[in-house]
Design a protein around this nucleic acid. Structure first.
Length: 640
RNA sequence: GGCGGUGUAGCUCAGUCGGUUAGAGCAUGCGGCUCAUAUCCGCAGUGUCCGGGGUUCAAGUCCCUGCACCGCCA
């Protein structure tokens, strides 16, 4: 049956879900659906990683116990996935008993084999932070948070003897060239392995951390991070005796973002080896999404969270954009501008319009009944379309297997263009004018519908909803499956004589009142710009927005970002706000300045920083000015 | 500081083992069609392949070096 097992990372619950989480999980879902289409039995795992000191600290900040806190955040992840049409088989939580049992079992096994040892080390420890600092992290020899001089203390911990397996791992990676892919990440791992491996500290004394899984061989310690987190991939399958483990583990494909390359490419294989468990087949590594905040806030006020776009434009379009825009393995940019662009040109104009013009003609010329293809009416152009369909399915399959989702979609869109051209060349509206060409017309429209059938199937992994809607409107019964690769590679599966439902618009064009670029917008006459007021809202809605006067206490540049500044502002309490004003304001200009902020905007992460509100400005990039008050006001004063 | 990556059309990017005249999509301009969501089809451009040096019959591709940006590590 050739099973297929795909995993996402388990997401750490010290923060809310963001675009990166969504991408990993969508990719896993796309692969899962694709392999199902290929007739394989699949298993799709995702979940949350819930132990560790960062979780304890995040819980404390919210005034919650760790248990209550992790329940809440884990729920956020779990609730997000259905919204993105993600169909996983199992959602694992590292706080579950079954998981803890597996962790204990594997730890004991490796301990018994002699690969875990106890050792003492010395370091600079801050009691305020409850953690060790490296020399580098200290500021003038002091803790960056508490400004105190850390104490040098000794601590004993358990270590995993990774060094023993270094040569073996290098050899394994060299023997299996796609063990880590794409190649760039394999090279990175091999480069790293040229240096001697340091043994991994895998415990924390309970005096410092209780929120974890107790070591089976020393109840004064909990295990820390990787022995807990990585083992989810086998505990979820019921290691060691569960049927799913036996069936799916040998086929496992891991999917991660590049930030956790090292644990997955180095620690994890060595852990498996040490525990006598077969290794995973491939580690598939993707890049980061850079969110262009400046291009994210045009049509809908202040949406900087890409996940919000999904609510407006739909899960299919969101998934399409992610898969089409990113080259798997490389970084990509996310902006609303690019999103709308792709939506209009690919989904509305190409696919949506093709679907629409085709069905309209079937309704117009054949009363909505799928016409019969007439023998002897086909010429080179018709056979060419069929060949194009076969090529599209073939190229698509190859690209999907290579994780080249952008190429897979390009193969589909090339075929869409071919059908559009086929319609232009055969000109059904001309054929319809003459009775003598009725049979020709039947053949042409049959072929068009057949092409659409192939497309409706090929898009299924990426856009499951659109796939279903298309198939309903093409008269393909859901009972029979038209989402099997083997059917999509065969021409002529559409059955004539079926009455099609009334046509619909698959992807309505996004009409933008605004110009595509800020420059054009400024260049336009004033009257035109003023007409673009947003729709009326009630007083009640307006009053939900908590506008406050805030005094800037601190400002600093956000690393890796040209436009963003991280501000600490006083609004009665201190809020951290990330603002896209770095191109117009210097840090020094801002300290002490009074600004107006939206204080109750749902917090969102920008470049990894949690932004608790938004600073109001007039205009954007080129000429952006802060909104302020006409004289000193107390921080936190509401605007009415 | 160490290791690695990236730099190609206005924009986003592809470019296999070094091999003919460097490609795609979008944007732009012109033409065509009317079945279609102002959609679709055709044609047309534009390149210091980051700079410099080298290897080679031949370099966007390999080597050295410089610059810019990015990531990982200490």
């Amino acid at each position: 049956m050739n099973p297929y097992y795909i995993t996402t990372p388990i997401y750490y619950v010290n923060a809310r879900p963001h675009l990166g989480h969504a991408y990993s999980t969508v990719v896993a879902d796309v692969l899962n659906r694709f392999h199902r289409m290929c007739g394989q039995e699949t298993y799709f795992l995702t979940g949350t990683d819930e132990h560790g000191d960062k979780v304890v600290r995040a819980a404390k900040e919210e005034g919650l116990s760790p248990l209550v806190y992790v329940d809440q955040i884990s729920e956020l992840f779990r609730n997000l996935w259905p919204e993105l049409d993600i169909e996983y088989d199992y959602f694992i939580r590292t706080t579950s008993h079954a998981h803890a049992k597996v962790v204990e079992e594997v730890l004991q096994k490796i301990y018994d084999a002699g690969d875990i040892y106890f050792s003492e080390y010395e370091g600079a420890y801050c009691f305020g932070c409850e953690r060790f600092y490296t020399e580098r992290e200290l500021v003038d020899g002091r803790c960056p948070d508490h400004k105190t001089i850390p104490e040098v203390i000794k601590e004993s911990n358990y270590f995993f003897r990774m060094s023993r397996y270094q040569d073996w791992l290098v050899e394994h990676i060299e023997t299996f060239p796609d063990f880590v892919r794409p190649e760039r990440y394999r090279n990175e791992v091999l480069a790293f392995l040229r240096e001697p491996l340091v043994d991994l500290c895998i415990s924390r004394p309970k005096t410092r951390l209780q929120w974890g899984i107790t070591l089976p061989f020393d109840n004064q310690y909990v295990t820390y991070v990787w022995f807990d987190a990585l083992l989810n991939y086998i505990s979820a399958l019921g290691y060691p005796d569960g049927e799913p483990f036996k069936k799916f583990w040998p086929t496992v494909q891991h999917l991660i973002a590049k930030d956790i390359l090292k644990p997955h490419a180095i620690y994890w294989p060595i852990m498996l080896k040490a525990a006598g468990i077969p290794l995973y087949r491939n580690l598939n590594v993707h890049g980061y999404w850079n969110v262009d905040a400046a291009k994210m806030s045009k049509s809908i006020g202040n949406v900087v969270d890409p996940l919000e776009l999904k609510k407006i434009y739909g899960s299919d379009a969101f998934r399409y954009f992610l898969m089409r825009e990113m080259v798997f393995g490389l970084d990509s940019n996310f902006s609303e501008e690019a999103f709308i662009h792709r939506f209009n040109s690919d989904l509305a104009n190409d696919l949506g319009n093709l679907f629409s013009r085709s069905l309209t003609m079937v309704h117009k010329y054949f009363k909505g009944i799928v016409p019969q293809k007439e023998a002897g009416t086909e010429s080179d152009i018709d056979f060419g379309l069929r060949a194009d369909a076969e090529k599209a399915a073939q190229d698509y399959r190859k690209a999907m297997e290579d994780l080249a989702f952008n190429k897979a979609l390009m193969a589909i869109w090339e075929f869409i263009n071919h059908i559009n051209k086929y319609i232009d060349v055969t000109a059904p509206w001309e054929l319809a004018k003459r009775k003598s060409q009725q049979r020709q017309l039947q053949t042409v429209l049959y072929n068009v519908l057949e092409g659409l059938r192939v497309i409706s199937g090929l898009i299924y992994p990426i856009m499951p909803q659109a796939s279903r809607v298309m198939q309903e409107h093409l008269g393909l019964k859901s009972a029979e499956t038209f989402q099997k690769m083997e059917d999509l590679s065969v021409w002529g599966k559409t059955k004539p004589g079926i009455k099609l439902p009334k046509r619909l618009t698959l992807f309505p064009r996004i009409e933008q009142g605004r110009a595509q670029s800020a420059n054009q917008e400024i260049a336009e006459p004033k009257e035109v710009r003023l007409m673009r007021m947003k729709p009326d809202i009630t007083m009640e809605i307006f009053q939900k927005i908590d506008l406050r006067v805030a005094t800037v206490l601190h400002a600093e540049a956000v690393p890796r970002s040209k436009k963003l500044l991280k501000l600490k502002v006083d609004v009665g309490e201190v809020h951290t706000i990330v603002a896209g004003i770095a191109e117009n304001y210097e840090v020094e200009d801002l300290i002490g300045k009074q600004v107006v902020i939206v204080a109750n905007l749902k917090p969102t992460k920008l470049m990894g920083i949690l932004s608790q509100g938004m600073v109001l400005t007039a205009g954007d990039k080129g000429n952006c000015r802060l909104v302020t008050v006409d004289g000193p006001s107390d921080p936190g004063t509401p605007l009415t």
